[in-house]
Amino acid sequence: MTETVESPTAPDPKPYQWNNGSGPGGGALLLIAFFLIGTITVIAGFMAGWRPPAASEEGQGIDETITYLLVSTGVIVLVGHAVLCWFLLKGGGTSEYRRPSAKTEWLFGLIPVILMLAISEAGVLIVSGPVWDSLFVEKPVNPVRVEVIGKQFEWIVRYPGKDGIFGKFALKWVHGVDNPAGLDDTDDNALDDVLNGKVLVVPVGRPVVVSLRSHDVIHSFFVPDFRVKQDLLPGYTTEIKFTPTRTGKFEIACAELCGLGHYNMRGEVHVLPQEEYDTWIRSQTGHFGG
């Protein structure tokens, strides 16, 4: 650390002086190139479609929100950068400068407020509101009900079986492969419940309501192709809904850090045509043989 004790009046030895003649020079052009190339690349990159195509109705809705935001905010970023570049390029030179009046300043405060409120609240209320409602508020029509259990570090899928009712469960009954879901073997409803490893099999075109619970820590059920994600909270049951629009195999990822094997907590969703699904579900026997 330096300690040049300087008395307030002593002249500085060879002090630094800003060279007024140098002007902005090539630096400004470089900056402008940086801003413009950056902005255009980013917007092009985002528009290029990094997402796997949406495979659920809700996913299409969420994609609409994303597209809306990409376009509206893309324009804002582009215009903002263009204006900044123009200011840098044009500069003020030596011409007379008049300070903007307070009125101008307030006006330039008001315009972005109105613009941003309109864009952002339209995004929330008009574009994404209906999707949100369809996910969490509206009652699904004729849904397939499934339960997905998260534990370190795998998924267990449970179907209600022939009676269509999920049996009772409790953590104290969980026991290895005999009873991985902790079902109550004295409960008639539980006897025919079907357990299915890491693969969630669902029919196409019908809403699927997945109840989620966890055996240990917080996990998060995420199917990128469906665009849906929902946390699993230990001690609680949460729900997520999606309506697959095409058949195929999709991946389930765990999105909430859940421990050492978090990265490896992979599951699959198989979306089948209704008839194939019916055949498949009929062929399944209950975990307790019911």
């Binding site: 800003w18 003020g92 941003m116 409120l117």
Partner: peptide
């Protein structure tokens, strides 16, 4: 985003008619 946009616009507008010193 609204108050933030005000700050953003003011930052950009601060460069308006600048006598730039690109240090």
């Amino acid at each position: 985003t609204a108050p933030f946009a005000v700050i953003g616009v003011n930052l950009v507008a601060s460069v308006w008619r600048a006598r730039l010193r690109l240090a």
